[in-house]
């Protein structure tokens, strides 16, 4: 401590996480989701990888079994929201106004705009970006990362952070014309090395290929969380 004229200069230890405010709100959101029996899924991908198409295709396959809600995050426009609303899906839009990601504050502000009468799955479609969304939790239970064949097999090597954070990874557009140049083995090998626990499903939202396996996995996460694992087993056996 340095003594001055009526003032003292000193160092104060702080040691606090710079993102602590977001982390705290994310925990509050997570408590809210769990209390209302919502399985919240943070959907992250580059622009154009097929986030909205995947959400739509998943809901179309599972909507007879479970209720869905969607929050759309975009810099601007309500293009995706209109697309989903046209299919009768309960959806709301957040425009981030140049912010590169959604955060816990933005999600917390809109949560009371849905009704929570039945257990449901909530997709939160993040801003198309493989960098920033990885750093900001929103209170989700699951992080989904969607890669797509036209983007190239090197995306996991170039953006390791987001692939590490994933609880599940989808490789979309496997029927794309670019698939000849896509080194599938290199892609899966990198994903496996970055993240040993996340399952990786190959899908095509256009043809429907692979969607059943992904949907079964998602349904199992939902049932296990809110109905106990026995129900999940029963549901699996019914499907089989």
């Amino acid at each position: 401590m340095v003594e001055g004229k009526g003032v003292a200069l000193m160092k104060m230890d702080v040691r606090r996480n710079i993102l602590e405010a977001n982390e705290k709100l994310a925990r509050d959101n997570n408590d809210f989701f769990t209390a209302n029996r919502v399985l919240a899924v943070n959907v992250m991908a580059s622009p154009g990888a097929g986030k909205t198409s995947t959400i739509l295709a998943t809901i179309e396959r599972l909507r007879a079994l479970v209720k869905f809600k969607v929050i759309e995050g975009d810099i601007a426009s309500s293009v995706d929201t209109e697309k989903l609303a046209a299919h009768g899906i309960d959806v709301l839009q957040i425009n981030t106004g140049n912010m590169c990601h959604l955060d816990a504050v933005m999600i917390g502000k809109v949560l009371n705009r849905f009704s929570y009468d039945a257990p449901s799955i909530l997709f939160i479609e993040n801003v198309g970006n493989l960098v920033c969304p990885a750093d900001f939790s929103m209170g989700e239970h699951l992080n989904l990362v969607i890669a797509s064949v036209p983007e190239g097999h090197d995306k996991p090597v170039k953006y390791p952070g987001i692939f590490r954070k994933a609880d599940a990874i989808l490789l979309n557009k496997i029927d794309s014309r670019d698939s000849e140049d896509f080194d599938r083995e290199a892609f899966h090998q990198t994903v496996q090395r970055l993240n040993r626990t996340a399952p990786c499903f190959e899908i095509s939202c256009r043809s429907g290929a692979g969607l059943d396996a992904w949907c079964s996995w998602l349904m199992e996460q939902f049932l296990t969380r809110y109905f106990g694992s026995r129900s999940a087993d029963q549901a699996a056996s019914q499907r089989g």
């Binding site: 009526g6 003032v7 200069l9 160092k11 104060m12 702080v14 040691r15 996480n17």
Partner: peptide, 13 residues
């Protein structure tokens, strides 16, 4: 990613 410490001026007494 954290704030370690701050340097401050305090009013004496």
């Amino acid at each position: 990613f954290y704030l370690d410490s701050i340097e401050v001026e305090t009013a004496d007494g």
